[in-house]
Design a protein around this nucleic acid. Structure first.
Length: 645
DNA sequence: GTAGGGTTAG
């Protein structure tokens, strides 16, 4: 057999389709005395079989005596772009300790990239120190990735310092600074850097610069600035509206709620890839237009644009919002048939089933998922919470701890929510304290809202008030609303009015506050005041966005607004509601029973209030759940069992 | 002979 040189072995590596083939080529390179050829190892690490081949290359590296910086650089690069960037950092450590080498300027951009992916703040700062000591800090490649690292980690002042100290800025370096501001929601600062770049005139802004600017507007939801940039793109930009720029514009408008603009940009694009479609689909989904989102998905398929995992996630969350379980199941089947599955899709599916009240189906999907993110845990926990199964939520939370997953502030929000719904006051307090003390999570205003709700529902109004007074952040309308809700539930008009004052001060122009106040007076039987508040609403021309309930029967989603009479069977529906309302009154005896008797009573009482408010054209929002969410869940359960058996 | 940074969609 003819001895093969490195060139032909290289060509073979590119045609490899399995790890075994790769190993054969490696064996051949050993026979040919080329096993330590750096280039071959690099190619193996980065071959099409990535990341399997990367693993193999690592095993070779470990057995290699005195591996060169070249090999380390290739491996650090490969790992910094892999799913496990922390391995890049241990490779770097290994190089420093085992080889006693500091690397070269090719090493560090990837080390910073890995630090950025891992949000390894301390490590990054340490490496920054090393770089300064060796004197590599004049390398612009290295410094732009260092700048990017600080931007990703939210250390924008440090990023700015790197930016200011570096003189020979190229366009990528400028863009990294703009992107840094963009990530941190600082659109004005991003714009300022862009203007400075144009003013200095040493480099011309490229597509990346404009993309970073648009992204700055998207993150900070600065529609006004976004429109200006759109105008600038149309007038000044010579590179034209690329697919990327178009996608960014569609996303900007969609995230800002301007779907008509988003659609106009979308329709004006001659070339659309899946990213563009996904931006519009998730935009519709995000803004509550799930029907339109699904229709777009079908159009996308019609135009032969291949849906990806983002498409599926967007569609599933659209279905979850409207409770369109059948449509959701159809999307699921589509995804399964097309081999689209990952932890994000799984999480969307858990959310879909939980929001549709099929918590068992949600759990089934959850249990089948090998890879779970914090969001996956949070979704199932909040599913249990809103389905009133606090016990399961608590049990699962313990399991989460055991699995090694690290709870975040949303996890605690879900578990507090679960406790609040079940009236588990002591347990809730315990979680709140442990969150602060053991997990070092600073409570946000949402956590306080949950705690006030928890205490308030249990009738501990004084304690709820004291918690509000102890807060180190400004209470928002949710916090005051929860106290207010509790006051109306327990008939404490005086404290209720005190809370209402704060609500009006915070949201003077919000009609929702009026509805809350009217609800409190209604619950206390003060119908004279209800009338006065409603009149005040009319006088001020306030109109609360109506809470909307949807149920899916067969393949049709029925939508109900408060006091809605447009459904063809509305007369029958209302008579059932009245009947139910009466029956529930006999069960609970009173509208103002404190939520201490566990899940069942809580559920019955919650529905009674919702049913009452439904028929009165009022609705009491629930802590943490949107109007339409709690409204829908409650109504759905009752309409399903009683009216559509 | 071999290599490098930033940029959209959840």
């Amino acid at each position: 057999m003819k001895t093969q040189g490195p060139k032909s072995l290289l060509a073979l590596i590119e045609t490899c389709t399995s790890l075994n083939q790769l190993k054969q080529i490696h064996a051949k390179s050993i026979i040919s005395g080329l096993s330590y050829n750096h280039f071959i190892l690099t190619q193996i690490a980065n071959s099409f079989l990535f990341p399997q081949s990367l693993n193999y290359a690592t095993r070779i590296l470990v057995q290699t005596q005195e591996p060169s910086i070249f090999i380390y650089n290739s491996m650090i690069k490969a790992y910094s772009q892999s799913e496990t960037p922390f391995v890049a950092l241990s490779m770097y450590n290994n190089m420093r300790v085992r080889e006693n080498a500091v690397g070269d300027q090719f090493t560090y951009p990837f080390v910073f990239k890995a630090c950025a992916s891992e949000l390894a703040m301390e490590k990054g700062r340490e490496v920054h120190g090393v770089v300064v000591r060796i004197g590599f800090d004049s390398d612009r490649f290295l410094c732009s990735s260092l700048l990017n690292f600080y931007g990703v980690c939210g250390k924008i002042e440090s990023a700015r310092q790197v930016f200011d100290e570096f003189k020979a800025k190229d366009v990528v370096f400028w863009n990294a600074m703009i992107m840094g501001y963009a990530r941190n929601g600082m659109a004005l600062e991003a714009c300022e850097v862009f203007r400075e770049m144009v003013k200095v005139g040493e480099v011309a802004p490229n597509e990346g610069a404009v993309l970073a600017l648009i992204s700055a507007c998207t993150v900070s939801k600065n529609l006004k600035l976004g429109r200006e940039i759109h105008g600038y793109v149309r007038k000044e930009v010579t590179f034209g509206l690329s697919v990327k720029l178009g996608a960014a514009m569609v996303d900007l408008y969609a995230k800002c709620g301007c779907l008509d603009y988003a659609k106009r940009v979308f329709e004006g694009m001659p070339e659309k890839n899946s990213v563009v479609w996904n931006s519009l689909i998730s935009g519709y989904s995000l803004n509550g237009f799930s029907r339109e989102a699904i229709d777009l998905f079908k159009d996308m398929c019609f135009w032969d644009v291949k849906p990806d995992r983002y498409t599926i996630s967007g569609c599933l969350s659209a279905c979850a919002q409207t409770g369109a379980i059948n449509l959701g199941n159809w999307v699921r089947k589509f995804a399964e048939k097309n081999g689209l599955w990952d932890e994000f899709i799984g999480t969307s599916l858990v959310d879909l089933y939980a929001k549709c009240g099929s918590i068992e189906a949600a759990r089934e999907v959850f249990d089948q998922m090998d890879k779970k993110t914090v969001a996956t845990w949070n979704t199932i926990l909040s599913g249990y919470a809103s389905n009133g199964q606090a016990g399961s939520a608590i049990e699962l939370f313990d399991e989460m701890r055991k699995s090694g997953a690290i709870p975040d502030s949303i996890t605690f929000l879900s578990i507090l929510h679960a406790c609040a719904h079940a009236g588990l006051v002591d347990k809730g307090k315990q979680y709140f304290d442990s969150m602060v003390k053991n997990d070092k999570i600073t409570p946000k205003v949402e956590h306080y809202g949950c705690m006030v709700d928890l205490l308030g529902r249990a009738g501990l109004l004084k304690e709820a008030r004291e918690l509000i007074e102890r807060m180190d952040i400004e209470p928002n309308v949710i916090v005051w609303g929860s106290l207010f809700n509790a006051c109306s539930m327990h008939g404490d008009i005086e404290m209720g009015e005190w809370a209402a004052d704060h609500i009006f001060n915070l949201e003077a122009m919000d009609g929702g506050s009026y509805v809350l106040l009217a609800n409190m007076y209604a619950a206390a039987g003060r119908f004279d005041r209800v009338k006065a508040v409603r009149q005040a609403m009319v006088d001020a021309s306030f109109c609360k966005l109506p809470g909307c309930s949807m149920i899916e029967i067969g393949d049709v989603v029925h939508e109900f607004l408060v006091a809605d009479k447009t459904h063809p069977k509305s007369e029958e529906i209302y008579s059932v509601l009245d009947e139910l309302s009466d029956k529930l009154k006999t069960v609970t005896g009173s509208m103002r029973l404190p939520a201490l008797a566990g899940e069942h009573l809580e559920k019955v009482q919650g529905n009674l209030i919702n049913l009452r408010s439904f028929s009165h054209g009022l609705h009491i929002p629930d802590c943490g759940a949107t109007d339409s969410e709690s409204h829908r869940n409650d109504l759905e359960i009752y309409l399903k069992v009683s009216f559509f058996p």
